[in-house]
Amino acid sequence: PQLADQKTLARQIYEAYLKNFNMNKAKARTILTGKTSNPPFVVHDMETLQLAEQTLVAKMVGSAGALKDREAEVRIFHCCQCTSVETVTELTEFAKSVPGFSSLDLNDQVTLLKYGVYEALFAMLASSMNKDGLLVAYGSGFITREFLKSLRRPFSDMMEPKFQFAMKFNALELDDSDLALFVAAIICCGDRPGLVNVSHIEVMQESIVRVLQLHLLANHPDDTFLFPKLLQKLADLRQLVTEHAQLVQEIKKTEDTSLHPLLQEIYRDMY
């Protein structure tokens, strides 16, 4: 009966993942390996960026026209924020579908999201990356790593650490069913600062982590160390988010750019 419960939990989490996230690894890999009839538009310089803005991301950038005269770095930063806000919204809906999450103390739900969403976001972002670039605009565009690196500082420092993480993370060859449980484990984490009912969350965390371990053994029988490797990735993601939050604070201080209110809430008093 216990094994049946664990399989049910794994299935519920996987279904919630497929339902709530617009992009997933299977979709992204189909596009990145050229198996679609419509290959993504490649952004590799200022000219192709402008072309992409006129077509693919017109809604994001051009809505108020407020950004059209701003420099490319600021426009890209704004696009990143829009994507982040969408993913945070998807992650919130995903979290609510994880059995037990919605019955947690509401303030604890907020704390789990505040600290978990960026770790989850960077873990999932790896699915849309290869060594040369990143899928954007729901997979209709591909922005090259070299172009992102060529932006002026501090914007050029934004994505390179995520590519470096993604290359190592992608080498683990997780599929969407593994990622669903991994993302759930990131969110249901008992040691986030300020949690009120830690024991309640630890019970949830324990069952998700156990299900993740069993699922990995079944899904990757040849990689017996995959589970401990993934636990290490949790620590790496925490470090990645800490550095990202510092960079965003620096950009906020030194650049004339606005930060979306939802992201401000998340970053404020984070670490």
Binding site: V85, T92, E93, L262
Partner: peptide, 20 residues
């Protein structure tokens, strides 16, 4: 609670869109 108004709103109401 005031510090995380939008997160609270997202958690309590799935239909409420977040303005971009």
């Amino acid at each position: 609670k005031e510090k995380h108004k939008i997160l609270h709103r997202l958690l309590q109401n799935s239909t409420s869109p977040v303005e971009l």
